[in-house]
Design a protein around this nucleic acid. Structure first.
Lengths: 156, 156
DNA sequence: GTAAATGCAAAGTTTTTGCCGCACA
DNA sequence: TGTGCGGCAAAAACTTTGCATTTAC
């Protein structure tokens, strides 16, 4: 959290700028802007860690001890539904397995959580980007998300 | 489960073939081939659903009521570690969020579960594959997995 | 025979829900 | 000043662990 009267770093300025945008967008969307929501958004916008709900909660606790974990869960869900933030791992609810060891991709239905295989050569990964040279890359997967035939028909 | 004396469908033959391979590979790896393990592998190999642990357990229960959910959890973990099957959603343990709404990809460290952003134009998705035309595609994400600098150094 | 695998029970994590009081627009 | 939001407690959903017994090899 930025401290008044102190010089802010560039990254902190960037974060504060994102928060202004967030407040503006929240109002447009009819969402109430509460101190908890600002704290949660700030924590996320100021982090490069792609934090979990628990991590966000713990960080906020330090300066806002009364906040509830439930609030963090509910708020992140709301933000995500409104398009203010995104979930890195759509399929976080439970481990999903595959006996097919051929290289292939997946498409998941955001409504019914069905996963289907996808063989598509138009998604090609050519060479390692310098940005990830310090990683020992083991593999990669492409996950499409969408709405499947059946869920489109049910349109709910 | 295929029934003796009945004509098998092509898909069932394919599944039984995969099971033979699985048994052979298990022996090579020094894994014991138990009825439970065959049942779990068959359930996965015969399914297009990318089932969760619970789904596999429930299906097996129908004809093998004594099997334990713990066994299914432990067995899937073992299979995955040995490279017999794979997890579709590496980051299933907890939801991870991102305030960065720009299109970008991610790289996750399989050891410490750290996620980093990745901007890479060499991963390009050109056009929708006919296979997923019946989906209303909302987006896609590329997730690289590997071992990060720090975890490489710790080499454990 | 022995190490590995299973089953049961219990506990640990992560997430959701119900209810009520509060405060923001 | 009403409705959306937050906090607490409880439950649900998912996963792991410890220990005694059984089984595959």
């Amino acid at each position: 959290m930025p401290i008044k009267g102190q010089i802010m770093k560039n990254s902190e300025l960037r974060t504060e700028n994102k928060i202004s945008q967030f407040i503006k967008r929240s109002k447009e969307l009819g969402l109430k802007v509460t101190p908890q929501r600002i704290a949660i958004y700030r924590e996320l916008a100021g982090s490069m860690q792609h934090p979990s709900t628990e991590m966000i909660y713990k960080n906020i606790k330090d300066y806002y001890p009364n906040i509830s974990l439930t609030t963090v869960y509910r708020t992140l869900e709301t933000f995500e539904k409104m398009g203010l933030i995104s979930v890195v791992n759509t399929l976080y609810h439970a481990a999903r397995y595959d006996a097919n060891m051929e290289p292939h991709h997946h498409v998941v239905c955001v409504k019914c959580k069905k996963i289907e295989d996808l063989y598509d050569d138009s998604i090609a990964y050519s060479e390692l980007d310098p940005q990830i040279d310090n990683y020992k890359i083991l593999g990669y997967s492409v996950l499409f998300s969408g709405i499947c035939e059946e869920c489109k028909t049910l349109n709910n």
